[in-house]
Design a protein around this nucleic acid. Sequence first.
DNA 1: TCAATAATAGACTATAAATTCCATTTTTTC
DNA 2: GAAAAAATGGAATTTATAGTCTATTATTGA
Lengths: 271, 271
Amino acid sequence: MGETGGPATIKAFEERLLEVSEDLPKRLRQCADYVAANKDRIAVSTVAEMAEGAGVQPSAFMRFCQILGFSGFSEMQRLFRDSYVGGWPDYSTRLHHLREKAEGSPSALLAEFVEAGRASLENLLKTIEPQTIEQAVQALAGAHMIHIIGLRRSFPVASYMAYAFEKMDVPAMLHSAVGRLDNRNAIRSGDVLLAITFSPYSSETIELVESVRERGIPVVALTDTIVSPLRKFDAIALSVSEVDFGAFRSLSATLCLAIALSVAVGTRRSG
Amino acid sequence: MGETGGPATIKAFEERLLEVSEDLPKRLRQCADYVAANKDRIAVSTVAEMAEGAGVQPSAFMRFCQILGFSGFSEMQRLFRDSYVGGWPDYSTRLHHLREKAEGSPSALLAEFVEAGRASLENLLKTIEPQTIEQAVQALAGAHMIHIIGLRRSFPVASYMAYAFEKMDVPAMLHSAVGRLDNRNAIRSGDVLLAITFSPYSSETIELVESVRERGIPVVALTDTIVSPLRKFDAIALSVSEVDFGAFRSLSATLCLAIALSVAVGTRRSG
DNA sequence: TCAATAATAGACTATAAATTCCATTTTTTC
DNA sequence: GAAAAAATGGAATTTATAGTCTATTATTGA
């Protein structure tokens, strides 16, 4: 195994990866993406594992290693094994460390939000009732068109769901109130409204829900707490309580629920 | 490969090591001493290497592993490898399988996303470098105006940051490409561009970054992995790797970083 | 010192992993 | 739209590595 001209340092490796990954055929690009996102795995995985992770055949992964300039996987792995600095402290130690260190520093802040996010996620699983999601999925999957509304702090959630539905060929429309245009007449019988709102609840959203319910159109709501004003309108309500830190919340749990709901609806429709 | 009763955690391993190493014959004691001092090497070494390090024969090292309660070296190594890649057991493939089977009630799907979100958050803490966030905060806090761009899947993140900045009275402008309006001339000297993009990278974002960098305006980037095209443009890049489900990710980690960054900038400015 | 016991080294075998090769499919080019 | 080139998947092959077995050496106690 003589020296082949592969990258000799992690830095050189990264540069080479960047340089090479410009135009790469499909499978090899998958390798590049997976490797970029999981560099740390190289040292402790087999080709087969890496290949599976990247969603390709082991032979494809081998070719990828060679394109990078190595003689094969083993040589590439050696680079990572040699520069491996293991013994990272575990999550809770790191968290503690970050929190203590320079209170108010950006990374201490990050640690707080990460912790809040984790707590929220845990809580989400505990509080969500399977049958309620099931109802929501059923309603949304049967809709001609899904109308999504969510303003201010809920707008990110609304826009992400709109994106997800679009990707899965589910007919959906985002009511974004751009230019104060009101599209409520686009909501027709057979459609469903998906309303997302958190305290303080936007009046626009509440109003839309109210007017739509009067016309007998089903509403699925993503909201917080059980006292949400949306409860009055007999909607299928999924409530998420997000742990907040300061005035802001990380939205981790909300988005998790949102994306799970979207994917469930998407697969239900095509299935 | 049946379950052998070896230590199941690093902690248990350490206890067992301590307990055992009281009275051990010469060679086995060498093993114990070497392992105690080089626990991190176990994950990336072969028996032969470990044995050489300890100054014993491979077979002696094997016996040592068995005394610790493992079936052999491989089993002991697995403990260290698994704990290194930390609760991130091949989510991409797990979720992939889940989708293929289209099996999975909505709540099972939710559980998967929650689990993926949790792992992503842990990983975020592990990979983010405090000094890079610090740089980003500094750049953003010193800007006259923060211009935010993030399209498609990144749009939720962009819009949430715009919302957060607004709430904290930080001058910020969201470039949303509504109506294909191009606002690039609004970006002036003294401003900073905050670009958010994830694979597949929107060409609009890349182009904007490129044109802005040519004018010498600083760019802070929120992106995934090191192969992101934004790397080329010498931006302050914060990379988050998030587990995805086909085209979707729960964005938990990304939003956590985004909100932490926003709040840090907000307090830095008013402080 | 001698027997009995335990420990060790080194060779041997089984196994798992890396790597290569080629038929098949996909993409490009004319 | 056909021919050429490139990319891919999967099986076959080779190599490296873990794990086992046994003869030899050290250690202990009488």
